[in-house]
Amino acid sequence: MLKHHTVFEEQIIAARVEALARAIADDLPEPTPVMIGLLTGAFVFLADLVRAMGRLGIEPHVDFMAVSHYGRSTASSGLVQLHKDSALELNGRAVLVIDDILDSGRTLSMVRAHLAARDPSWLRTCVLLDKPSRRQVAINADYVGFEVPDAWMIGYGMDAYGQGRGLPYIAAFEAPEQANLGIEYHTQ
């Protein structure tokens, strides 16, 4: 297993997902929005958010998009590629994009612009983690779970080199080049 430090434990994540679901439900213009998860890292977050919204009487339609710019590295290539688009009709619909991490902003910016061109009536973004220190494109998510330091996060669906997705908590992966970052992690 990868060397890592727990940042957010299961109970903290669950409480935050419930709070995000309530905030989103309060803002939704309709009870049947389209929720689009960005694969692969957001699948656990999306599933928990869909269930939390269901408990609030929201019945979303769910789809996925696959985009990438990391490949087999922890350094972004800078080029965002769309591998799978949403197959749902979005014209006139309320659409919520779900991602695991807002980092450079390239992915979320590209996806948001791509979906806006499909003319939804309401388009918002929700990210589990936000790393504002890494932003290279001027974009902010409408709903944010947690702000995190500049470290590679694993667990709760997120991975590094294919490992760590199944961890029930969120942790900072200590890559060899990150070993001396001087960041202190704690359970919140």
Rank of each mutant, 00 (worst) to 15 (best):
S73G: 10
S73P: 06
A75V: 09
A75Q: 12
S77H: 03
S77P: 02
G78T: 02
G78Q: 07
L79E: 14
V80T: 01
Q81E: 07
Q81P: 02
Q81G: 03
L82E: 09
L82C: 10
H83P: 03
K84I: 04
D85S: 06
D85F: 09
S86H: 13
S86G: 07
S86M: 09
A87W: 11
A87G: 12
L88D: 07
E89H: 14
E89A: 15
E89T: 15
E89W: 12
G92M: 05
G92L: 13
R93L: 08
R93P: 09
A94Y: 07
V95R: 03
V95G: 07
L96R: 02
L96A: 08
V97T: 07
V97G: 10
I98H: 04
I98A: 08
D99T: 03
I101T: 01
I101Y: 01
L102D: 10
L102A: 09
G105L: 11
G105Q: 00
R106H: 13
R106E: 10
R106G: 02
R106I: 03
T107M: 03
T107E: 00
L108D: 11
S109Y: 14
S109W: 10
S109V: 14
S109P: 02
M110G: 12
M110D: 03
V111C: 04
A116C: 12
A117F: 03
R118S: 09
R118I: 10
R118K: 15
R118Y: 08
D119I: 04
D119N: 15
P120L: 10
P120E: 11
P120N: 02
P120G: 04
S121P: 09
W122Q: 14
W122C: 11
L123M: 08
L123W: 06
L123A: 00
L123P: 00
R124S: 13
R124V: 12
T125V: 10
T125P: 01
C126Q: 03
V127W: 05
L128M: 12
L129D: 09
L129F: 06
D130N: 13
D130P: 04
K131H: 04
K131I: 05
P132A: 10
R135D: 04
R135M: 04
Q136H: 13
Q136E: 15
V137P: 07
V137R: 14
A138Q: 15
A138K: 12
